[in-house]
Design a protein around this nucleic acid. Structure first.
Lengths: 217, 217
DNA sequence: GTCTATACAGCGATAGAC
DNA sequence: GTCTATCGCTGTATAGAC
């Protein structure tokens, strides 16, 4: 819809190169965390799927704390790269917030929860550095959304609101919560309805195309 | 504010009775799950805090699956008892949705996540029956909210919206998500701002009193 | 209903050969 | 960079005495 490139696993590698082992490990760990949670994922699970021994995993990521940190950093980097791309596409503010919501829809469509949303639920058990990274991920998302909403209001394309920052926070919370409460139910209908209701509150009309064209893992 | 009784642990017991062991186990397990997550909680953790051995815990709840089921059932029962009480207080629809949001605020003020929100993040690792109970918890919440919103619209006390059910779902998702993304940050300011923004969307003005008078665990 | 003792699988992690 | 082998610990769960 708005973004021209599909951002997915290994998006940073050129197509023909074989994926580096550390990337395949991260891909697998990421999927496991997004679907089952950090504390339900083990080195044995990753080992099985990647096809190397647990000992080899420890060569790439000595401790689980190292692995989680790498996971959040890569996810965060990719996520904001997608946002930058969205912004560079020249879409207007209404399209930007819709594109933003579509990123979440794409993640849920693959049966996953947002990585940082999932880690937020495990927050108390996270290594300190990962805690900071997760908090920073949310704060940065809010700032990005706040800017978009501010611009939308200024140009008369979004509904005026007392606090653009609070509107941004409500949208982020709404989308993360929508993923959380929708996964127990079949399909993405519940999420789509919630996203539409949240966007409608900002003055963004419903999207007529199919959702989830942009995937950010 | 709206509710007259504070609903908390052991609310079902008369004051002078000593808490039954199984209840103390559930209280402890509930706190651990709400703060750390199901897969970060062990029988050893509970044993330590309750002051009985792991073997004794297994007498009351033979398997962890039994314990989770009991946890969700008790939480659900209490939660809807509080909603019934709220409703019986004769508050108008705007006060009801504000009271609803205050329940969540009270949980967060104690440093906890909604039990079912937390379990939703661990959904894939839950025993089947607990999965169903968690899904039912959300569905029932949405239905309750939908009814309140419908009534509020009919009586002109809430902003009219195309789909009261979708508005209810967006509010539930927004509040669950607000708890999720607010816990990494100090205090309840973030949650309060989000809750206010969500309520404002329904036409419920900001609450001037302090939040979190009703606690539902 | 609680205890001691124990079984046994799984966990994250390390040593050292190749 | 990957392997085999193993360590020490923790996980859930059970047997049987009191």
């Amino acid at each position: 819809m708005s973004s021209t490139r599909t951002v997915d696993e290994n998006a940073t590698l050129s197509r023909s190169e074989p994926a580096r082992t550390s990337d395949r490990i991260l891909d697998t760990a990421e999927e496991l965390v997004q679907t089952r949670g950090l504390n339900a994922m083990s080195y044995a699970d990753i080992s099985e799927r990647v096809g190397i021994t647990k000992a080899s995993l420890h060569y790439h990521f000595p401790s689980k704390a190292d692995l989680v940190r790498a996971l959040v950093e890569r996810y965060s980097t990719r996520f904001f790269a997608v946002l930058a791309e969205l912004e560079a596409s020249g879409a207007d503010p209404a399209e930007l917030v819709r594109g933003y919501a579509d990123i979440y829809a794409g993640v849920l469509a693959r049966g996953r929860m947002c990585l940082c949303g999932m880690l937020a639920s495990d927050y108390a058990t996270l290594p300190t550095e990962a805690q900071d990274d997760v908090a920073a991920f949310f704060a940065r998302n809010e700032q990005w959304l706040e800017g978009v909403i501010r611009e939308g209001i200024a140009s008369g394309r979004l509904t005026d609101t007392a606090s653009p920052l609070d509107a941004a926070r409500a949208l982020l919370a709404g989308l993360e919560g929508a993923m959380l409460v929708s996964r127990p139910f079949e399909g993405t209908a519940r999420f789509d309805a919630i996203a539409a209701a949240l966007l409608a509150g900002l003055g963004v009309p419903a999207d007529q195309s199919t959702t989830g064209t942009v995937a950010a893992g």
